[in-house]
Design a protein around this nucleic acid. Sequence first.
DNA 1: TTCTTTAACATACATACGGTATGTATTTTA
DNA 2: TAAAATACATACCGTATGTATGTTAAAGAA
Lengths: 198, 198
Amino acid sequence: MQEETRRRSQADRRADTRAALLTAARLLFSENGYADTSTPDIVKAANVTRGALYHHFEDKAALLRAVVEAEAQTVAEDIRQTAGAERSPLEAFLSGAKAYFKAMQTPGRAQLLLLEGPAVLGVEVMRDIDLKTGGGTLTEALRHAQAAGLLADAPIAPLSDLLSAAFDRAALAIANGEDRETYEHATAVLMSGLFDPS
Amino acid sequence: MQEETRRRSQADRRADTRAALLTAARLLFSENGYADTSTPDIVKAANVTRGALYHHFEDKAALLRAVVEAEAQTVAEDIRQTAGAERSPLEAFLSGAKAYFKAMQTPGRAQLLLLEGPAVLGVEVMRDIDLKTGGGTLTEALRHAQAAGLLADAPIAPLSDLLSAAFDRAALAIANGEDRETYEHATAVLMSGLFDPS
DNA sequence: TTCTTTAACATACATACGGTATGTATTTTA
DNA sequence: TAAAATACATACCGTATGTATGTTAAAGAA
């Protein structure tokens, strides 16, 4: 009777420990924050050693980055799935915002993507991640609306920046227990002003 | 011939070392970030010992909090000084925003108030500090405008939250070298939509 | 099949940091 | 002038991160 743990491929072994590390890190980082989570804590939860962690990731920050990238990837996919054929650009925006808010309600997600990530990795790295995963969806949509003459005549890039900041704040507020419809409404008011054909 | 450092009052001595610590910490925290600034670094720059630091502040975070509170105080005063009698609520808003952006251009200030502070102290603590220093200026102004029937009929609190997020992002972008007028314009577009009498 | 190499860890170690406990000199108060 | 309080200074402890080295098992070469 052989031990069943024998003869596992290196690739499988590697994938397993890596997944265990990511899962444990995701939980601890989001619950206790990056600074208050030690690498001993993480490896204990993942049932591996610190040697394994530093074999897979250059340092603690690289582990957070991997967690954040996975999370951003999931958010992007969630939103893409919700994308339907909307009537007006404004409706498309509001439905996109709602999808974003919903996706960000997954426990720990707002904490990781909106607080720990920017704080530890920096806003530049977070922007790179957003571009890789989301692909600048918001900017694209704005450009589309403006081309249709439905949006105030202003530079897209900074406007997109400001709006995404507002969306992030709304998502965070909702994730922290604030009333969802209230913030969705406020978002709608803010957006509809922009799309007003005045 | 007596040493000139003798016979200094305790209050003077206390104020001096406290000021030295705050100055050194402000510089290092804003330049290298909270996590990458050690207490040995700080006391070296301030020419005091770690004993002095822990005599004046409960821990490293309390030192950051003191730095951030002083900074927020200065910003609030700067903005109050710029407050003139504007014609319309919208103009008052835009002039207030410009004053805010200008005040946030002091080197290191955006880093401290918009990045390190929220990351280390948490958003709740930062909100408390804002209320103590700024006094909820934005919310007040919104309420005033709405009472005058000039603002879309929406709950003030969440709208104020979203707008302040957008303002913060603009201030940060400008502080990081983005073009000032571009972001001021984008801010104006966003605001004017809200104030549109549609 | 066997030998060699390499990948995936595991262990041990060096360094540094944050916070506390304790000691000391100077000022203030009684 | 003696006692007490203040403002530090020094010493120390536990823990963290990252690295260097050792070990085991899988994969490729002979």
